[in-house]
Simulated scan of single mutants.
Amino acid sequence: MGKLLKPEAAMPFQALVTSKDDSGAVANRLETLADERLPPGEVLVEIEWSGLNYKDALCLNGLGNLVRVYPHVGGVDFAGRVLDSSDARYHPGQAVVLTGWRVGEIHWGGFAQRARVKADWLVPLPRKLTTRDAMVIGTAGLTAMLAANRLKAEGAAPDRGEVLVTGAGGGVGTMAVLLLARLGYTVAAVTGRPQLEQQLTRLGASRIVPREELLRPSGKALDKEQWAAAVDAVGGPLLGEVLKKIRYGGAVAVIGNAGGITWEASVIPFILRGVSLLGIDSVMTPYEARLAAWDRLTDLYDAATYEPLVTEARLDEVPAIAAGMLKGQVAGRVVINPAAAG
């Protein structure tokens, strides 16, 4: 049993609250809340950093039917320190990280100075990482790590050939470029933003592939074999074109849908080239797999290399940045300091 929260620690806190009126209009504003407003859970956490992800941008704008009950506090990931715990696995002062489990969607999340969550959803923060590091990595880095692990399990070794990363300018894409390069893969980065070429090269991309080049339909069921594997953060028509160009026995790990959820496809890449399509879900990943992924990320993450792609924000700045993210105007990772004054 953890220590009871001291009365003097039970102070009001700020949260970015999303509400919806009777007309369906969604609004986001800072509110001061008491701990009693937080949902039930075994662990109360003081949030030091949270992250802004594409799914968060959807939630903040009432899109995708992800949020069902309002008022709501979004934020699908956060890192901080335990204030109070009734679960023996966690104790006050311990650093923890949370990603997934539909927190920020159907459960209140990290866009606040405090959160109360189930103990099973947390992971102890690896000692080599700060809470800020954890949120620079965040859901994006965890997802990219899971994708790299799946590709390796499918036989996509570095000596098999070049690996493509689509949506390489976004949070998951940039993390995938960095991690794959650090694992020894030769990485081709796809982006529609040529101004990011230098940053992607710095992360480890060997070359840049213009998005328009891949989006141009070939009209064929199969194209010339180009890549041994791919990490796709875009989905939509782009995925259909990528599948046609994967080498025999290759695989595509699908991790996002920024470009849409449907595409024109045929069975030909699968039955003539033995291509595998791998679905990557970081939301419901079991605890042991999360621990293993975070342990690997501790060794692979290079803070100095990634730092130029990090944007820090306050809670009150999140809605505007989220709107830009939906328009493809945000590169890299956005981390939020809930203690920063507005």
Rank of each mutant, 00 (worst) to 15 (best):
89 R>K: 09
73 V>W: 07
282 S>M: 04
321 I>K: 11
138 G>H: 00
145 M>L: 12
108 W>K: 07
209 V>Y: 08
161 G>V: 07
211 R>K: 13
166 T>Q: 02
90 Y>A: 03
240 G>Y: 07
294 W>F: 14
158 P>W: 06
79 A>W: 07
153 A>R: 12
99 T>G: 08
74 G>Q: 00
136 V>S: 05
17 V>M: 03
207 R>Y: 07
192 G>S: 04
178 L>D: 08
36 E>Y: 00
155 G>R: 04
131 T>V: 11
320 A>H: 07
115 A>P: 12
48 E>Y: 00
8 E>R: 06
315 L>G: 11
31 E>T: 01
251 A>Y: 13
162 E>I: 07
210 P>K: 04
236 G>Q: 15
316 D>S: 15
325 M>Q: 07
147 A>R: 07
332 G>D: 02
92 P>F: 11
232 D>C: 15
165 V>G: 03
28 N>C: 12
278 L>K: 12
341 A>D: 07
97 V>M: 14
143 T>C: 01
289 A>R: 13
169 G>Q: 05
298 T>K: 04
19 S>R: 04
41 G>I: 01
264 E>N: 15
52 L>R: 00
26 V>S: 02
171 G>A: 15
216 R>I: 01
83 L>Y: 12
47 I>D: 00
341 A>Y: 01
291 L>I: 13
318 V>Q: 04
51 G>C: 00
250 G>P: 11
131 T>W: 01
257 N>S: 14
100 G>S: 11
299 D>N: 10
27 A>Q: 09
93 G>V: 08
74 G>W: 00
283 V>M: 10
198 Q>V: 06
138 G>D: 05
226 Q>Y: 09
53 N>Q: 00
135 M>W: 01
219 G>N: 08
76 V>H: 00
96 V>Q: 12
300 L>A: 09
235 G>M: 13
56 D>W: 01
24 G>R: 13
228 A>K: 15
286 P>Y: 14
314 R>C: 04
140 A>S: 12
48 E>G: 08
115 A>S: 15
240 G>L: 11
183 L>S: 03
134 A>Q: 07
60 L>M: 04
340 A>M: 05
250 G>Y: 05
231 V>R: 11
127 R>P: 02
179 L>Y: 13
139 T>C: 05
239 L>V: 06
309 L>K: 09
299 D>M: 02
319 P>Q: 04
65 N>S: 10
158 P>Q: 08
277 L>E: 05
